[in-house]
Structures are given as C-alpha cells and as structure tokens.
Computed example of a mutant assay.
Amino acid sequence: MKLTPISAGHFHCDGGALFGAIPKVLWNKAYPCNNDNFTQLTLRCLLVELDERKILIEAGIGNHYPEKHLKNNGVTSVTALEKSLQEKGFLPEDITDVFFTHLHWDHCTGAVKNTGKKLELVFPNATLWSSKKQWEHAKISNPREKAAYHREVLDFMMDTGKLQLIDTEGEFAPGFEIRMFDGHTPGQMLPLLHTEKHSFVYTSDLITTAANVPQLWISAYDLDPVKVMEEKGRFLQEAAEKNYVLLFEHDYYTECATVQQTEKGVLLKEKLELAALI
C-alpha cells in the first residue's frame, strides 16, 4: 500500500463554528484565526495505491459554485485537484475508485465538473463509493444541513451508475478498513489504512484538525454533538492504545499526529509529516 496526499485547494471557516462551545481564548492558542475570525483549512485528499487499484479518498469542491459562495468560504482553487494529481504523476483516467467519507459539498462535488453545458465525471474510469446511510440521509437531511448537499451533483453521480453504496463496516480492500460514525452526519465512513509500518486513520470530520483532538473540542457543524463526543471518545481510546496515526483532511498546518492517554483524557502526543512515515 502506498499513500500520497493530493491537494484539492484550501478554504476557511469561522473559528467559532470549527470549535463549537470552546471559548476563543482557548482554541485560538491551538489554531490561529485572522482578524475576521476565519480559520484556514485545507482539502487534503489521499491517494491509496493498492495492487492494481488507485483509490482516491475525497474529491474536494469542484467548479459548481458561484463566485460569491467561493469567496465567502475562502476557496482558493476549483482546479487544484487535477493539477495536484498530475504533479504526482497521475491522470484522472488512472483513478479506479473515489471513496467519499460523506457527501457534504467540500468532500465530494469535485468528482464532477460543470462544462457549462452539462455535468461530467472527473474520473471516468472510477467507481464512486458512499455509505448507504449517508446517501439516504442526504435525500431527506434537515434545514440546518441541507445547504451542505449539492443535490444536482449527487443525483448526477447516481444516474451515471457509477455510485455504489456501502452498508456495513469492514474490509473495503486488503488493508483498507471502513469504520462508521454517525454524529457529524449519519453514515460518515472513515478509512483505517494498515501499512507495513503504521495504521493510519483518515479522520475526515470526526476530528477536523489536530486542535480538535480533545474529546469536547467538537465542531458546531456536527448534527448530534453528544453522539460525536461518545464516538470520538471511544475512537481516541483505541487510537491511543493501538498507536494509530491520525491523518487530517482539513488541518492546514498539520498532516498527521499521534495521541496518548493522559490524566486529562486522550490528548495530542506528536505532530508528524506523512512523508516521514511512509
């Protein structure tokens, strides 16, 4: 198994949204913001090469949104994903699978491009993967979360016949394990990747940044805060016991980290670069 980070650009969000009920005087020491209270985030996709398969985890934002929406969300590029792949020696046609942790706009809509006349798949040879629970939830959603789903893009992916739905946890591919978490949004799937040296967990929105590691430091975007804290608490205990390497999708400053058990619960142990671990 070979792991390669792929950039789909950057964006930002309000620091209060990123850390929920945690006071700014605390979170701003761990994760900086600008004068407008915006925290810089990134769209760190991950390419997993496994035998003949090239599995891209997440696909970023894409070119579906008006300029005002992109500006409000601090989106730096809508073409970064393909450029980053090419810089690493890959073409969109090389990708065999695109794995979505969930279907919020910043995680999946970059798998489709708008040509101005029609929608097209960015990765024409790839099977797209979502959890069944997340797909069903995205169709009904709720007023608070509805804006996070781009219905036209999601329906297009399904209509192509390329989108496949996963029912349960377990092995997705050799060494590629799926874990389900429902607190952020029902049916969020996290990849647990077992390499020869380490077990990596792509944390998606369960743990948005290294600063979000403490159990209570959760996002205001989480639909069920109590469930998130319960799920996160159990996961952090396992991560500390088994020395998992957390790989952050959205942390602008930190690619990876390990955690450890302390008197104050499971907390950050060491920040790491992926290149030094593989």
Rank of each mutant, 00 (worst) to 15 (best):
E196F: 13
L216T: 13
H194T: 15
F19G: 11
P32I: 03
T195C: 09
Y31E: 05
Q86H: 08
K118I: 01
E169K: 06
E177D: 15
V48L: 12
K118P: 04
E152H: 00
I22S: 09
N212D: 03
K269G: 02
K88F: 04
N114Q: 12
E177N: 11
L277K: 08
T203W: 14
L46Y: 02
T115F: 06
K232M: 10
I166L: 15
L121C: 04
V75Q: 01
P143Q: 02
K139Q: 15
K242W: 04
E93W: 05
E145G: 02
K242M: 01
V266N: 12
H107E: 13
G175N: 10
L121K: 08
V48H: 11
L26H: 06
L192K: 15
T258L: 01
N63M: 02
K232N: 15
I57D: 10
G265S: 11
G161N: 07
I61M: 02
E230P: 03
Q215C: 11
S130I: 11
E169T: 00
K269N: 09
K232V: 13
Y65V: 00
Q260R: 14
D224N: 12
F100D: 08
K88N: 15
D224S: 11
E255W: 05
G16H: 12
E82Q: 13
E145L: 08
F200Q: 14
K88W: 07
S77N: 08
E249W: 01
T195M: 13
T209C: 14
L3N: 08
Q86G: 07
A59E: 06
L26T: 09
E230W: 06
K54I: 09
A59C: 10
M157P: 04
P32A: 08
A240V: 14
Y252D: 05
D182R: 00
R179C: 10
E49R: 09
K71W: 01
A147H: 07
F156N: 02
I278H: 04
L216H: 12
V259K: 00
S84L: 03
D14V: 01
R44E: 04
V245S: 07
T208I: 15
V75G: 03
K197P: 09
A276V: 02
S77T: 08
A21D: 14
V245C: 04
K264V: 00
H69V: 00
L128Y: 11
L81Y: 03
A17H: 05
T127A: 15
V201M: 15
E263S: 10
A138M: 12
H184M: 01
F90N: 13
K264Y: 10
P191N: 12
G60E: 06
F99I: 14
V48S: 07
Y149E: 03
K146G: 01
E238N: 10
V153W: 00
L268Y: 01
N125A: 08
W27V: 00
D94Y: 07
K68Q: 13
H250W: 04
K146L: 00
F176D: 04
T160P: 10
P225W: 08
I57V: 15
D159Q: 13
K227F: 06
